[in-house]
Design a protein around this nucleic acid. Sequence first.
RNA 1: GGAGAGAUGGCCGAGUCGGCUGAAGGCGCUCGCCUGCUAAGCGAGUGUACUCCGAAAAGGGGUACCGAGGGUUCGAAUCCCUCUCUCUCCGCCA
Length: 426
Amino acid sequence: MLDLKFVRDNVDRVARMLQDRRVDMDMGPFLKLDEQRRALLKDVEQLKYERNRASEEIARRKREGLDAEDLIDGMKAVSQRIRDLEAELGAIEDRFRDILMLIPNMPHESVPVGADETANPVVKTWGHPPSFDFEPKAHWDLGEALGILDFERAARMTGARFTLYWGAGAALERALINFMLDVHTMRHGYTEVLPPFMVNRTAMTGTGQLPKFEKDLFKLEGWDYFLVPTAEVPVTNIHMDETLEEDDLPKYYTAYTPCFRSEAGSYGKDTRGLIRQHQFNKVELVKLVKPEQSYDELETLLLNAETILQELGLHYRVVVLCTGDLGFSAAKTYDIEVWLPGQNTYREISSCSNFEDFQARRANIRFRRKGKKKTELVHTLNGSGLAVGRTLVAVLENYQQADGTILIPQALRPYMHGMERITARR
RNA sequence: GGAGAGAUGGCCGAGUCGGCUGAAGGCGCUCGCCUGCUAAGCGAGUGUACUCCGAAAAGGGGUACCGAGGGUUCGAAUCCCUCUCUCUCCGCCA
């Protein structure tokens, strides 16, 4: 959520931002409601002021044993008027708030203006695509042939976009999770947390998934709980409604969670393999920092995520999302795209964003500078460190051998009990 | 699932038969005084949001907030209803 006063004072900038983001939204109703709201608020508060003064007078007279019936009678009408105006005001404030909650974040000045992902500039490339003296296969063929990925049975017990992992496949997924968590906790200074995998509406609103994107979420029937679409939600909301001390910052958290996404609107996209699942594993990095540090922190967050790919020897590139491709809550986002030789393409494997104070304002996460009375909003950041399923895809496709086996990257072998190669399951 | 207790400011905690309680008292914190240093002591201050006045800052006015929402009333932290959460006991359970 943007600051109300900022929006009011910068309507033109906000309107231009909406254009840059290719969001079709008119600020007219917002301004009109704001005006109505403030006029009404003034009236209501004036009436309440009168009522409060009268109440004091009534109390005083009663204490002194005097009659106050005339005042009480007069206040009946005032109170009724207050009730009427408050009902009107309440309706306007609801609509006003609804609009405010649907305005996306202001992109950082360094974010390029562009229509869609084709306008995302590549800012960094690491390593090289591996060369094969055979035609590299896609992971779904490799995984099925090795008997480690089973799409058919998962579809039977659940449905499309779910996968059953077997044997070394399941172990590899688990190894990746542990490897990533170890790197981030032991080398990058993050504190590991294991949050709930379901959260309530308030938490979802705090990080910006609600109210706008409810259709992308899995909701529990009979409960106002949602399955987390990313650990960003429970982890960023750890400090919801808290005022931290300056010395508490920065906070670095890492968490493994499964992620659940309805993938509404992506019918027919990436239907094969592990790329787009309703349930996938992810190790997430979350930072709460002081405002003046957040862009430096974004750079190190990106490097922390990149480290995983480098350790695994996987070729990747980094792009900056342009305004048209930038997520609702983000001010700036880097996507890391890993090379997938089986599909001859780069695929997003991490998304690292600075949300500035957009989430902090919604989730009410503040801090107090030493010796200062006034509290300020923290800046929040997060990034995948990494999407585990897609990392497994990258390992399978990049480390495949001519005979269909998979060489296990050195960094993962300790996590695989020394296993060096995945061969067909008997 | 059954029975009961509770939810007040940064923390602890008081709020009588509804009325000068934004909220006693204590702790903490900030500033000042005092003091070889420290401790103790003394004095003052110490929530948030919205809104109005002010060019702005300073400052000032107002409204709201005692778990959340609704109701009764001229007036609610105090009374009523619904919900949420916490704790205790019983049951069940990984």
